[in-house]
């Protein structure tokens, strides 16, 4: 028995025919476990992957564990803004990776520059020489070759002028540079590039599945299919938006 039938009938609302079709699809437990394990391995959640292998009785090879371990380390370095070590670690793993992906290398160096700029502008004497030095040694030569990097470099250098200042007072594109989201995005790109360099899928099936639903729902609505106004997943804090009047569906 599915919960949606329970809730819909309990609330006295007739169930939307599409939800009946949803209920009629029976997920396969081992598919679901695969998707979870694939996510934990791809995203480098080492402990959780090991525990899940034990609890769900799944295989996790030593090679996979090693790959998770290294990628998790690098990810944490990028998130922590410890870029120099992250770059070294990536080069230890495979020097080709950054050689082949100039944009990613530049993005990492720019994170490092932003960190230096934040540090020097926070000091009372505002000695900005280290930032200028790093920029002209590491970033400027690359931006000279790749014109498309120039704008990104200029934006970062603008921080030298405006900082220190509360992040809320900055132009949105400058504020972006100081938000953790930027490091998250670069960390994800690094992880993806390492995985593809090892001949693996760069993103997890779960990410793809989320995209599939978004895409399929948009296409189906576009084609005028008869769908309920919302298709919540039942995560409690329905981010898909709810208007309160709908019966709870999952």
């Amino acid at each position: 028995m599915s919960s949606s039938t329970v809730h819909a009938s309990a609330a006295g609302h007739p169930q939307h025919p599409f939800l009946k079709k949803v209920d009629d699809i029976k997920p396969n437990k081992s598919d679901m476990n695969f998707v979870i394990m694939d996510y934990l391995v791809t995203e480098g959640y080492q402990k959780a992957a090991q525990k899940f292998a034990a609890e769900a009785n799944m295989d996790l090879t030593g090679e996979e564990l090693e790959s998770i371990h290294v990628r998790a380390e690098i990810k944490m370095m990028v998130l922590r803004n410890d870029i120099q070590n992250a770059i070294n670690k990536i080069n230890d793993l495979n020097p080709q990776i950054l050689d082949n992906d100039h944009a990613l290398h530049f993005a990492l160096l720019r994170l490092q520059l932003i960190r230096i700029i934040k540090a020097v502008t926070a000091q009372p004497n505002m000695n900005i020489t280290p930032a200028l030095k790093f920029s002209s040694a590491q970033l400027a030569p690359r931006a000279a070759i790749h014109q498309e990097f120039l704008h990104d470099l200029e934006l970062a250098m603008m921080l030298l002028v405006v900082l220190p200042a509360p992040i809320e007072t900055l132009r949105p594109e400058l504020a972006e540079l100081l938000k953790p989201k930027l490091r998250q995005d670069v960390a994800r790109r690094v992880n993806e590039v390492i995985l593809t360099s090892q001949g693996k899928r760069g993103d997890a099936r779960l990410q793809q599945l989320v995209k599939l639903k978004t895409w399929a729902e948009a296409k189906a609505r576009e084609a005028g299919k008869d769908l309920p106004a919302h298709l919540p997943l039942g995560l409690g804090d329905e981010r898909e938006g709810h208007d309160g009047g709908e019966p709870m569906v999952s």
Binding site: M1, S2, S3, V6, F18, K21, V22, D23, I25, P27, D31, M32, V35, I36, L206, L209, V210, L212, K213, A216, E217, K219, A220, A223, K225, L227, L231, L233, G234, L235, S250
Partner: peptide, 26 residues
């Protein structure tokens, strides 16, 4: 889970079911 008043299927399962049903519509 049902006896505890919780949904018998996880949100991930719902995500899959919805995707499959939407793809069938398409």
């Amino acid at each position: 889970l049902v006896s505890l008043g919780k949904s018998s299927s996880a949100a991930l399962e719902r995500l899959y079911q919805q995707s499959e049903a939407l793809v069938t519509e398409l």
